[in-house]
C-alpha cells in the first residue's frame, strides 16, 4: 500500500527531529507491539488548525531515558522521571509542529501543551479519527511510536494548490 502524504510527513518529521535535536539516528522500523511495555511513557498533544487532531507519542522506558539524556547533555542515570517526561513532551511538540508545517504551510496552527498519559488512559484511547498515521522507530533497545489522528482528511499544500 503506498504511503499517504501524512504518513510520509510523520516519518520524515520523526527522523528529522531525532537526528537534529536529539542526535539519535533511528533504526529500521520495528513491529508495533499490541500492548505497550511496562513503564512506557506516553504523551498526548492536541492541535487546532487545518487539520485539527491529536498526536500521541509513546516511548519505551529505556529509549525515553536515552533521548532525554542526549537532549539535556546529561548522564542517563542522573535523570529523574519528571525531567524525562518533560523531554518526551518537548519531543512530541517538535514532531507535531514539524508534521503540521509539512502538510499545512499556508495557514497557522495552534498546539496545546503536551500532557503525559497514564497507562490505562493510553490503552483505552478511542480511535475515532477520520485519518490516522502511525510511525515507529527503534532507538537502541527501545521503541518510539508516533500516532497522528486528525478529524478531517489531510492533504499537502502541494495537493491543495491543484484545486
Amino acid at each position: 500500500m503506498p504511503e499517504t502524504p501524512v504518513q510520509c510527513a510523520l516519518r520524515e518529521s520523526v527522523g528529522e527531529v531525532l537526528e537534529k535535536m536529539f542526535f539519535v539516528e533511528p533504526l529500521d522500523e520495528p513491529p508495533v507491539a499490541a500492548d505497550p511495555p511496562d513503564g512506557e511513557i506516553a504523551v498526548k498533544l492536541s492541535f487546532e488548525g487545518s487539520p485539527s487532531g491529536v498526536l500521541t507519542l509513546s516511548v519505551s522506558p529505556d529509549a525515553a531515558r536515552q533521548v532525554a539524556a542526549d537532549f539535556l547533555g546529561e548522564e542517563p542515570s542522573d535523570l529523574a522521571a519528571g525531567r524525562i517526561g518533560e523531554v518526551v513532551c518537548e519531543l512530541a511538540n517538535m514532531i507535531c509542529g514539524s508534521v503540521l508545517s509539512r502538510v499545512e504551510s499556508s495557514s497557522t496552527f495552534r498546539l496545546a501543551a503536551p500532557s503525559l498519559l497514564m497507562a490505562e488512559e493510553w490503552r483505552r484511547r478511542p480511535e475515532t479519527a477520520d485519518c490516522r498515521a502511525v510511525h515507529s522507530v527503534a532507538i537502541g533497545d527501545g521503541i518510539l511510536t508516533a500516532t497522528l489522528e486528525t478529524r478531517d482528511p489531510v492533504c499537502t499544500s502541494a495537493e491543495k494548490s491543484v484545486f
Binding site: 509542529g97 499545512e104 504551510s105 499556508s106 495557514s107 498546539l111
Partner: peptide, 8 residues
C-alpha cells in the same frame, strides 16, 4: 518555534 508556516 515548531511553526514553520509562512503566514506565522
Amino acid at each position: 518555534s515548531t511553526d514553520a508556516t509562512r503566514s506565522r
